[in-house]
Design a protein around this nucleic acid. Sequence first.
DNA 1: TGTTAGCACTCATTTGAATCGAGTGCTAAT
DNA 2: ATTAGCACTCGATTCAAATGAGTGCTAACA
Lengths: 346, 346
Amino acid sequence: MRNVELDERKITILKAIIKNYMDTGEPVGSRTISKYVESKWSSATIRNEMSDLEEMGYIVQPHTSAGRIPSDKGYRFYVDQILQEKNSEVAEIQELMIQRVDRLESVLKKLAKLLARDTNYAAMISGPRYHENKLKFLQLSRVDEEKLLIVTVLEGNLIKNTIVPATEHLSDEELLNMNILLNSNLNGLTIEEINLEVISRMKQQAGQHAGIVDLVLNQVAEVIRADSEDLQIYTSGATNIFKYPELSDNQKASELLSTLEHTETLKDLVGGDEAGETGIQVYIGEESQVQAMRDCSVVTANYELGEGIRGTIGIIGPKRMDYEKVLKTLRTVMTQLDAAFKKEER
Amino acid sequence: MRNVELDERKITILKAIIKNYMDTGEPVGSRTISKYVESKWSSATIRNEMSDLEEMGYIVQPHTSAGRIPSDKGYRFYVDQILQEKNSEVAEIQELMIQRVDRLESVLKKLAKLLARDTNYAAMISGPRYHENKLKFLQLSRVDEEKLLIVTVLEGNLIKNTIVPATEHLSDEELLNMNILLNSNLNGLTIEEINLEVISRMKQQAGQHAGIVDLVLNQVAEVIRADSEDLQIYTSGATNIFKYPELSDNQKASELLSTLEHTETLKDLVGGDEAGETGIQVYIGEESQVQAMRDCSVVTANYELGEGIRGTIGIIGPKRMDYEKVLKTLRTVMTQLDAAFKKEER
DNA sequence: TGTTAGCACTCATTTGAATCGAGTGCTAAT
DNA sequence: ATTAGCACTCGATTCAAATGAGTGCTAACA
């Protein structure tokens, strides 16, 4: 695929500039490149080409008499190139986490930590978003004299518990009947489908214990509401940003770290569902729309655990992040997560 | 209560130094103090006293020809003074969090955020430690064709769920009996009390479904183990440290923030049970034993939610933190937490 | 005898000038 | 079309002088 704007040589030089800048974090000058590319061209030639590239907006000069650094547009070009080469070689990532870990939350936290350590960037990972909130199972139990336990299981095996004070006394048999009543009426319904008709029918069936029905329904509503509101986001390795001088001056570091602490803002990054064909999105600089991240790049990937349970993983680093490595790592993790939960299902 | 070492004037001056340093973060000189204390004494007198105080170890000079700053010993003196004045006036703290929030975790997270915002220091809060891990209630249900749900409730209403594949088929009636079997045998036992004898008795009673008993017991063991290992710690406001120049140089900030990210280390701070008479502990500088916090002070308070459920709240800030405010805030929060959960119980 | 004014001295920090050097743009030669 | 050469730019570094906050000491004072 030819590029109409950039000829072969410009591409080579642009790539060289970006690669070099990734390593060093310093603006790179013509001489450096002329050595880097096996002295195919002299520094003067490079200078001319660089001048062109600058005019086209692929690189910028932080100040006169400094080398060039890639602009957002430059990075974008580079990333697009990589995304095209679908080299999805699945490297072995530490499998330590795929031990028998039961709770999803715990897996996600560990995964974030792992990602941060591996990449040396900051990692964030959103808990799953459950799209179809269908009720799968309800269980009402008496946990002690005056307390009832309501267990709600949603499609996708999301389980929530609540303990409520028992407002009225139920015998063991009544409890059993209530459970049957609840499950036969509610199973398979989404929250929207639990309308007044369903409710009044249930209350009628429940007879004198209609109050309990209310209790349970309130709880169900609460669970579903809470779940869709409290999107959990785990971050790790935020302090990795201190490894990159261009991010770690006090002003910027503070701003960036605050943002990483502030779940609300992260939701913007993680919330979008517009996945590329590979499920991977790259935001360079201001593309992310998040002020504090204008000097960063953010790479996000969506994972899916079957039954419509989706979440997002994100890596946040300097613009000069090692895109190749990050993309590869994310692809691997997605595969592994997938595999792990397929296994769990069996 | 007289102090044998320090006379009235030395105390006044020492306090003035500490207060002033808290405001400004700058070393404070004799002239400043002489103005500060309504010109009762001249700067020269102050100088003499300061010289004494320095010799006694209450204040130090960062370098010759700089003002003095309080030493750990100085802060210690100051804090001890405050702790003596038991002014436990319970200010009204934002009650927004004491709404109907059901999940403890969520309350704790919000609380950490609130504390951090209020104090302008970093806050951490540990999830509850359950000391007496007695089984209170077990419930086994069939959630769909090939999956069983095990709900474990421990003393103190800690609830855990697990979904496991059903290894053998149980009829509704058998399931009911199994639940009775489980609860009648296990309720009220601690993990240690579930010995081989109990287990073999249960298996015998279970007859052909002994396998299920194993399944459940494994789960119970796992829950209790996981709970005692995975002490959750929530932090918030870590970036507040950038507000204090003496902590925010790159080296220190990075170190400190890493520590705050690293749960293991925080456990050391939060784990200890040696509460003072008020349940509040103050660690100044190296007293905390945590390297990265040698320039910080850490104030911890234990909260208790009845039934032996305990946790710890901590505030981390510069040595010159406003101890009075922090102590007051913590006392308030403890009271509120207590009240909130007393209410919840009813 | 305790307090204070005065003064010489110290030393981190600030300021500004001089220098350095990496890198560019342009021109002329190849 | 490529390259060598050179003047020029401008941030970074270095260094010394100036600054000023603060001390310690001494002598005068109440």
